[in-house]
Structures are given as structure tokens and as C-alpha cells.
Write a protein that binds this DNA or RNA. Sequence first.
DNA 1: GTTTCGATTGTG
DNA 2: ACAATCGAAACC
Length: 201
Amino acid sequence: MPGRARPLPRAFYRRETTHVARELLNKVLRMPDGRAGRIVEVEAYCAGVDPAAHTYRGQTARNATMFGEPGHMYVYFTYGMHWCANAVAWHGVPGAGVLIRALEPLRGLPAMYEARGGVSERLLCSGPARLTQALGITGAQDGADLVRGDGPRILDDGTPPPLHPVSTPRVGIRVGTDRLWRWYVPANPHVSAARVQSVQE
DNA sequence: GTTTCGATTGTG
DNA sequence: ACAATCGAAACC
């Protein structure tokens, strides 16, 4: 990691979700035990107008963190087995955040391999549920303060976001596919391979 | 109360 | 192409 990693200010997350998403590229997600990875792929889930967002139909027990303070982590459970992590980020209308979809592993790789069970480095953190498994993130960290907490933090190590991030539709959703709210670092090998979804009539 | 389905992944 | 696997959301 070039430079010394420093926390992002709370105000960083109090901006438009799509803007925060792009700015989160190349930031560092670091766990208390030292496991860390560079964020290379994100998706924005916006408030009010976004039918793909968990918060689209209002606040529930599951998504309550998204309606809380920006800069905290929203962790949800899906497909009966997977955890996914978001950075809460919104301005004005609450209930929005940024899904972290892939990391480039930086530190603590042995612990990541142990948690993931013998996969290649390219597959270690290249997917929203792969990276939570590699870092040990579960629902226990839902609501964690990414700015000031003792748990997971998002840090700036001086690496700027890419000047021209690649923009695509989001992965794994059936509504809101017209919005190009997925971004990734161009040519980074740790970006997840978005599968082609078969559409049945 | 009951049913459906998911911001996914690994395997065949 | 399909199963795994379970809680939240949706529906009645």
C-alpha cells in the first residue's frame, strides 16, 4: 500500500450514492486482524427511485442500517448462505448505499485462503459473497462504523480512483437494469466475472 | 399462516 | 444447467 492509510471522513459518505460509489474504487477495506483488500468493483443502490434496492419498499428490520448514519456498514444475508457488505451512503433521501463487489487482496492473504478453502488468488475476493467470506464479514458486523469503529474500516492509502471507471448494468437483478450503476477498475484481474443470466419466458 | 425468491456461488 | 439453503418479503 503506497502512503499511509487514513480513515475517510464521515462527510465522504454524505453525498450522492453514485458519486460515493465511484470514489470508493481503489480505497482499502481493512479488518481489525489486518486482512485488507483494495476495492475494485462497486454497485450503487439508490433511495426512492431504485426498484432494485432492498430499501425500495421502505424500512424493514433487515435494511434498517441503510436508513441510518452514512458511513456505517449494511450487511445482509442472501440465498440462504451468503453475506454481502455495503457502505451506507446517501444525501437527502435516506436508504441507500454502495455494494462492495470485489477486492484486490492486499494483506492477510493466508487468513483469506483459510477462510475460502483453497481457491486461486483471482477468486479469493472477486465477488460480493466471496470477499465477505475471505474477510470474515457476517451479520455480526451489520451496522459497524466504517469511519471510526474498531471493526471493518474503509481507508484511503493515497491511491486515487480510476480516471475512467468502467460502467455497466448491475449484476443479479431483474429490475432497474437500465441504470449503469456498476463500476469497476479497468483491466483489474480481481473484478468479478458477471455471469450472463438466462432469461426464461 | 403460507409461499416465493433472492444485490450468489460452486459444481456438472 | 442446476442445486445449495434459509430468512425476509410478498401474498392470502
